[in-house]
């Protein structure tokens, strides 16, 4: 239960971190909060030759309002995301989701970007980034590139990040004012990994739903956007019948796995019922469009 030996670089700038990764020749690993990486190091599931610590790089620990977007830096810890007034105001669904991320001690250290890079299928950050159509800012030897999170998340615990690249921020477009939202998670114990979790966003135009976004996790190999259920509700009036149709579309489009915590059938049922509640909640919160 101790990490294998590695060299340690306390990076002082993004450039320094990139150089250290390059010098490690593909065998370097970035550490930020370490709340996912450290257990893997302790179990020796990962054995990097060089650990590049970004905790001392100035300027990465901020949430910034860039106009249409909120920019979450690579060292923004869950504690800050949970308490930040910009997030609470513009992205209340994320503010709510933060209450379900592990517990205070892990939130004190763990970061939004780190959780995204770890890409655990049962973690909230990848799912919320998918829901919010986040864009990942990646810096490497060739400069900075921006990648939609749908392309960034490749598979369970696997991302598009190259071994010589660093995620420097995640950008989230502010949902339109009046966007309704809902979030529900079911876990055996608060802060534990979810058996299922569903979140939704919806805008209302003349009583018709538009820009319906539904994401879920705990019910597949990765966090998911549920496009069949979204399509079933786009343009609808969110009646009980329409929501029921979307719930059955959702149950058809997911392939949960059975494990010690629950069978696939149970998870499929649970995800549907969570979605039913979340969708109703989102629609109730969606402000009717104010006539011009």
């Amino acid at each position: 239960m101790k990490p294998a030996p590695f060299a340690y670089v306390a990076a002082t700038s993004v450039q320094h971190a990139i150089e250290a990764l390059a010098a490690a020749g593909g065998d370097g690993k970035i550490i930020a909060g370490g709340q996912s990486l450290m257990p893997m190091l302790n179990f020796r599931l990962v054995r990097p030759s060089v650990l590049v610590d970004i905790n001392r790089i100035p300027g990465l620990d901020r949430i910034e309002d860039t106009g249409k977007m909120l920019r979450i830096g690579a060292l923004v810890r869950h504690r800050l995301t949970a308490s930040d007034p910009l997030i609470a105001h513009h992205v209340p669904v994320l503010h709510e989701a933060m209450n379900h991320v592990a517990h205070h001690t892990v939130r004190n250290r763990g970061t939004f970007c780190g959780s995204l890079c770890h890409a655990d299928p049962a973690a909230e950050m990848p799912m919320m980034a998918l829901l919010l159509d986040a864009v990942v800012e990646i810096t490497g030897p060739a400069g900075t590139r921006h990648l939609p999170v749908r392309e960034f998340l490749v598979a369970s615990l696997t991302t598009d990040l190259a071994p010589d690249e660093l995620v420097t921020a995640v950008e989230i477009a502010k949902p339109a004012p009046g966007t309704g939202w809902g979030f529900a998670e079911f876990a055996r114990r608060h802060g534990d990994y979810a058996l299922a979790c569903v979140a939704a966003l919806v805008e209302s135009r003349d009583g018709a739903a538009c820009n319906v976004r539904i994401a879920a996790m705990g019910i597949g190999d990765t966090a998911l956007r549920l496009s069949a259920a979204e399509a079933a509700l786009e343009g609808s009036g969110f009646s009980d019948e329409e929501i029921t149709r979307a719930v059955s579309a959702l149950r058809d489009e997911i392939e949960p796995m059975s494990d010690l915590s629950g069978s696939a059938d149970y998870r499929r049922h649970l995800a549907g019922e969570l979605a039913r509640n979340v969708l109703g909640e989102a629609w109730r919160r969606a402000a009717p469009e104010v006539p011009a």
Partner: peptide, 29 residues
Amino acid sequence: CEHGVCGACTVLLDGYSARSCLTLAVQVD
């Protein structure tokens, strides 16, 4: 547990609780 699950090793790091088993000594220089 030495992997961040049990909480027995919790200490305060700059005033906030942290798992000392999920923190490297070099990081707290």
